[in-house]
Amino acid sequence: MTLYKQLLTWSMGIFITISVVLFALEFHHTRNDLIEQQTVRFDDTLNAATFALSPYLQGDDLEEAQTIIKKIFDNHNYQSTTLISITSSEAIKLNFKEPKNSIPSWFMTLSNIKPIQKTVQISSNWQPLANLKVINRPTFVYEKLWNNTKSILFALTFCGVILIVGLSIVFRRILVPLQIIQVSAQNLANNKFDEVLETSKYRELNDVVSVFNQITKQLRTHFEQQSEEKQTTCSCVPRSSIRIG
């Protein structure tokens, strides 16, 4: 693996690690905040229902009480309601249909939000009239949490792409002096002596450039001396002694 790829890989790894930590913290905070909002809304609706049902329960008008319950609770935020009259012991149980949603099942399993279940006593002038049991459906929390999660993931992905593109450009520019040294070293291995390398603006590379230039000069001088000696040797032709008998 090249140094460029290694730097880019480590940068991506660090960014992903930080992103996961930030995402987990934000997810946990948002989840708790939405659950608290759901609880407050549930309590407010339950209080409003007991206030609205009280006049009809005083007259044992359970049919109208059932109509009021449907108006208040028949939506995607509630699973079922059970109204038990204390005076007549009659019970009205209503189950509400679960709406279709686009939230993935794995996300709901991961979020693990429990439905709220409460039972309140409806009374009038300190006289108990009925008990109302309500079980909600945490659809509100799932929808808000899913939308918030998608927004966070989109933002992190966008920032990640911008960061990687920016780092790739920066790393390429930073590693240019090393690439020049690499090419010069390859040429040096092939007995090709380049010009003296310029001093790098990076302090860490200055010593490397200085040593490389010194080695290049020494090798160039050595090969020039060897070349001159070879030429001198070739120019000296020995004389042959001839005998005439």
Results as ranks from 00 to 15, higher is better:
81 T>S: 14
54 S>V: 08
40 V>K: 12
84 I>R: 14
67 T>I: 11
213 N>S: 08
101 N>E: 11
13 G>P: 00
239 R>V: 07
44 D>V: 13
212 F>R: 00
56 Y>V: 14
146 W>Q: 06
174 I>N: 01
1 M>I: 11
161 V>E: 02
214 Q>P: 00
203 R>V: 07
45 T>I: 10
156 L>V: 04
118 K>T: 06
46 L>Q: 11
15 F>D: 04
61 D>R: 09
89 S>L: 12
95 N>I: 05
222 H>E: 15
224 E>S: 15
212 F>K: 00
183 V>Y: 06
132 L>A: 01
49 A>C: 07
167 L>K: 04
20 V>I: 15
63 E>S: 13
50 T>M: 13
112 N>R: 05
134 V>E: 01
57 L>R: 03
59 G>V: 10
239 R>S: 09
220 R>F: 04
148 N>Y: 05
203 R>Y: 08
165 V>A: 10
142 Y>H: 12
1 M>F: 10
15 F>Q: 06
20 V>M: 15
243 R>H: 09
151 S>T: 14
19 S>P: 02
237 V>G: 00
66 Q>T: 11
223 F>K: 13
214 Q>H: 14
1 M>W: 05
182 Q>S: 12
141 V>W: 02
217 K>H: 12
235 S>P: 01
32 N>K: 14
196 V>Q: 12
190 N>Q: 11
242 I>D: 06
164 I>S: 08
46 L>T: 04
171 F>Q: 04
210 S>G: 02
18 I>P: 10
158 F>C: 06
179 Q>W: 06
46 L>N: 12
128 P>H: 04
175 L>C: 06
1 M>L: 13
75 N>I: 09
23 F>M: 13
24 A>E: 15
148 N>T: 09
22 L>Q: 13
229 E>Q: 14
29 H>P: 00
145 L>M: 04
189 A>M: 12
47 N>F: 11
220 R>M: 06
83 L>E: 03
206 N>I: 14
41 R>G: 15
198 E>G: 09
168 S>Y: 02
125 N>P: 05
204 E>W: 03
120 V>E: 12
182 Q>M: 03
170 V>D: 07
121 Q>M: 14
160 G>N: 01
198 E>M: 03
241 S>D: 05
183 V>D: 09
155 A>F: 08
183 V>K: 12
205 L>S: 02
48 A>W: 10
24 A>C: 10
207 D>M: 05
17 T>I: 12
192 K>H: 10
139 T>Y: 09
133 K>G: 00
228 E>V: 08
164 I>R: 01
28 H>Q: 14
155 A>L: 14
190 N>I: 03
96 F>T: 06
127 Q>R: 09
83 L>C: 03
148 N>P: 00
48 A>M: 14
69 I>A: 11
55 P>Y: 07
142 Y>S: 02
35 I>G: 02
237 V>R: 07
198 E>Q: 13
171 F>S: 04
51 F>Q: 15
233 T>F: 10
181 I>R: 03
12 M>P: 00
241 S>V: 09
117 Q>R: 04
34 L>N: 05
119 T>P: 07
101 N>H: 11
188 L>P: 00
26 E>A: 14
18 I>H: 06
163 L>P: 00
20 V>E: 11
133 K>L: 08
222 H>Q: 14
224 E>V: 09
120 V>S: 11
149 T>I: 06
242 I>C: 01
116 I>W: 02
213 N>R: 01
176 V>Q: 13
209 V>P: 00
222 H>Y: 15
48 A>I: 14
7 L>D: 03
192 K>N: 10
15 F>H: 08
229 E>F: 07
54 S>Y: 01
